[in-house]
Amino acid sequence: MKHIVKIITLLVTISALWTGLLQMSLVPRSHIWLLPIYFIVALGCYGLLMVGIGLMRFPTCPKEALLLQQDISEAKEFLKQSGIDVGSD
C-alpha cells in the first residue's frame, strides 16, 4: 500500500469518528465542531516542539574537528614520505 493511502485512511478514520461524535451528540455540539481545529493546532504544536527539542539537543562534536585535523596532518606526513604529490593545497 502506498504511504499516502495509509495517511488518507488514517484521516478518513478520524473524520468518521468525528462525524460519529456529532451524530451521537453526547457532549455539546459546539465543542465537537472545534475538534478539527484542536487537532490541527495540536499537530502544529507537536511539530514545533519536536524541532525545538531537536535544536536544543542537537548533537555537536567540536572534539571531532580537532581529532580530524590531527588525522589529516598524520596522513599528510605519510603521503610526503611515500612521495605522493598532492599539490600545494
Binding site: P59, T60, C61, P62, E64
Partner: peptide, 9 residues
Amino acid sequence: RYVRGGGVH
C-alpha cells in the same frame, strides 16, 4: 548523526 555518540560540527 542524530543519536548518542553521533553529532555534527
